[in-house]
Structure formats: C-alpha cells, structure tokens
C-alpha cells in the first residue's frame, strides 16, 4: 500500500535462483543494485540511458535493460544475470560455449548483455535466421563490431539447444 512515499525500502529479489534481501534506496537502479549491493559485476554499465544494451538482464525470463529499472521494481521478481547462465558445476551455457569457439567476444564489455538477450531470443525463436538474430541484437552495441562472430555463435548455439546435430 502506498503511504507518504518512501526514500528507501527493504526488498527481496530472487537473483540467479537465490533470494537476496537488502535495503535499497528507491532511486537505486536495478543495475547498480546488482553491481554495488550484490557485487554481481558481470552486468556491465555502458551508457546508463538505455541505448547500449550492456546492462541487459532477464527479469521473469524477459530481457530488460537494468539501467532503466529501479531496484524496488524488482522486489518479488526473478532476475537472471550473466553469473546465472552457466550450470552450477561451472559448465558453460551453450551460448557461452559457442561465443568462446567463434570468438564472439573481443573486449567482452557488451557480452553479458548480448548473452542474456540471446538466451531469451532463442527460447522464443529456436531456429533463427541470421537476419532474425541481427534484429534481436539490434539493441546491443558491440564497439569491437564483432557481429559476424556473434551471429555465427548464435546459430551454432541454437542448433545445440535444439539438440539436433553435434557441436564440435
């Protein structure tokens, strides 16, 4: 219920499967909550105004820009960050493995946002064309411009996730 409004609030967010409780100033963005409060610095901050896509995380399974959400808005929701993609035993998500093989990352700054975006995309579109992949990542800027390798990695990861064909 609303009252006189608050400047800070106690929140509980499920991050990568674990419930995280913390006191969050209401003006704290979700990205700063992840990085500064929870020390999950895999989520990168490029532009902080919703243009670069580096800070993309999954909120209830959907890719969103964490710099354009307040931490209090994530209260009671599930957040998946780059740290939550690999299996508990450390084995990489098929997208991560394919990015490694295809040199889908150079400096790596955009990579967390690309991977979280593509995890959602491949769930919606398990057998994409290269053009569909390029459209899906139109909101993620890679300034090393390694897009060709990213697209090649995504096509291979899609194949692996569908379970058809073998991955090298």
């Amino acid at each position: 219920m609303s009252d006189g409004g608050c400047a800070s609030r106690s929140i509980a967010v499920t991050v990568n499967g674990s419930v995280c409780r913390a006191e969050a100033p209401v003006r704290l963005t979700l990205s700063d909550f992840l990085r500064q409060t929870l020390h999950l610095t895999g989520t990168h901050l490029g532009c902080e105004h919703g243009v670069c896509g580096a800070c993309t995380v999954l909120v209830d399974g959907r890719a969103m820009r964490s710099c354009l959400m307040l931490a209090v808005q994530a209260d009671g929701h599930q957040v998946t960050t780059i740290e939550g993609l690999a299996a508990p035993d450390g084995s990489l998500h098929p997208l991560q493995a394919a990015f490694c093989r295809h040199h889908g990352l150079q400096c790596g700054f955009c990579t967390p946002g690309l991977l979280t975006t593509l995890v959602e995309f491949l769930k919606d579109c398990p057998d994409p064309t290269a053009a569909e992949i390029r459209e899906a990542i139109s909101g993620n800027i890679c300034r090393c411009t390694g897009y060709d390798s990213i697209v090649a990695a995504t096509i291979e990861a899609a194949r692996a996730l569908r379970g058809d064909g073998t991955t090298p």
């Binding site: 609303s2 608050c6 400047a7 307040l70 209090v72």
Partner: peptide, 21 residues
C-alpha cells in the same frame, strides 16, 4: 547518470494512483 532523489509510491489500484496524483 543516476536518478535524482525522489519519494517513491507504488499504488495497487487506479483510484489510489489518482488520489496520489
């Protein structure tokens, strides 16, 4: 590049939001 300080309200109904406004 951080939001300025404000007070936060998250009403659960339209009536409540209109009353706050």
């Amino acid at each position: 590049m951080k939001p300025p300080a404000f007070l936060y309200h998250d009403p659960r109904s339209i009536d409540e939001a209109v009353a706050l406004l």
